[in-house]
């Protein structure tokens, strides 16, 4: 228990993603701890979300609560499985230098943050569940909390991706530059070349550290201004492309997540329907959202 709490603390402090390594263009993530903590946080929010199903006047069911508790982590896992392959393939096509395990680590870290924020609003969900009888309101409240936690985690992921992409570009571009010089100067030894590569990496980290006092680069222009025209020309395009892919992925992730939530329903538990593990295949997330909005003031 103490270990889980320590891991949760590390997660929300951002310590599961090694920041200095990110500055060097590497992703070091404590994947096992992240998955364990993510599962626990998902289960925690599931309990809060499923509280309504266990308390509703008709068809109250503890089994419904258990089902929701299990479905929340499942929702995140399935959304991840659906969206991750396309993100990786398209970002690689657009020039991303992130390796498979690096993309995986970044996204799982982001999902962990998402689940942490979601679990933290659990008491508010429980509060409204206990003192309101409006099912549409609870639906909308949950949609809002999922969106809010998603946006916060995406914001953090976005900064990490930017930081990583730039660090990799600096390292790669400067390393090429060093190699070109070495081809001209044949007398230099391979050992010295390695030393200089190390120096370039250290310099890149130092530049990033200077530009980002306790943070990743906020604006590309500030960052680019400090770099030589040669490097600026060489690196502008892939980062922009990657940013576009990332933005597109965020939208796809949101849509898939929302629809996955619809497929996995009931999550809250419609008051006049008995418990079922899954509802029949019909409609979409937007249908449900529209219905909740229409019924809210009826």
């Amino acid at each position: 228990m103490a270990r889980i709490l320590t891991d949760i603390d590390r997660l929300i402090r951002g310590e599961m993603l090694d920041a200095p390594a990110l500055g060097r263009g590497e992703v070091k993530v404590d994947l096992r701890s992240l998955l364990r903590v993510g599962l626990v946080l998902g289960l925690v929010y599931g309990v809060f979300m499923g509280l309504y199903a266990s308390l509703r006047p008709a068809h109250a069911s503890m089994l419904a609560m258990v089902a929701t508790t299990l479905k929340v982590p499942l929702l995140f896992l399935l959304t991840f499985l659906v969206t991750f392959p396309s993100l990786y393939v398209f970002s690689t096509l657009m020039g991303s230098k992130c390796r498979l395990h690096e993309s995986l680590g970044l996204l799982i870290a982001s999902m962990g943050t998402n689940l942490a924020v979601l679990a933290s609003v659990g008491p508010i969900t429980a509060f409204f569940t206990l003192c309101t009888d409006s099912y549409p309101f609870l639906v909308l409240l949950n949609v809002f909390f999922f969106a809010l936690s998603g946006l916060i985690s995406v914001g953090i992921l976005s900064r990490s991706v930017r930081s990583l992409a730039r660090a990799k570009e600096i390292v790669a571009t400067d390393a090429d530059f060093v190699v070109e010089e070495k081809i001209v100067d044949d007398d230099e030894t391979d050992a010295k070349l390695d030393d200089e590569d190390d120096f370039v990496e250290e310099t890149a980290s130092a530049v990033i550290a200077t530009l980002t006092p306790g943070d990743s680069p906020e604006t590309p222009t500030d960052f680019d201004r400090t770099r030589s025209p040669r490097i600026r020309h060489a690196t502008a395009s892939p980062t922009d492309s990657l940013a576009r892919v990332f933005r597109a992925w965020v939208i796809i992730y949101g849509i898939v997540g929302a629809q996955m939530g619809w497929i996995l329903r009931p999550l809250i538990g419609t008051p006049d329907l008995p418990f079922a593990w899954f509802r029949p295949r019909e409609g979409s997330f937007l249908t449900g959202l529209g219905q909740a909005l229409v019924q809210l003031f009826r």
Binding site: I12, G14, T113, V117, S120, V121, P123, I152, I156
Partner: peptide, 10 residues
Amino acid sequence: PSFFVLNSVL
């Protein structure tokens, strides 16, 4: 709780 987590995450 959400305020604490939000502060930590940010």
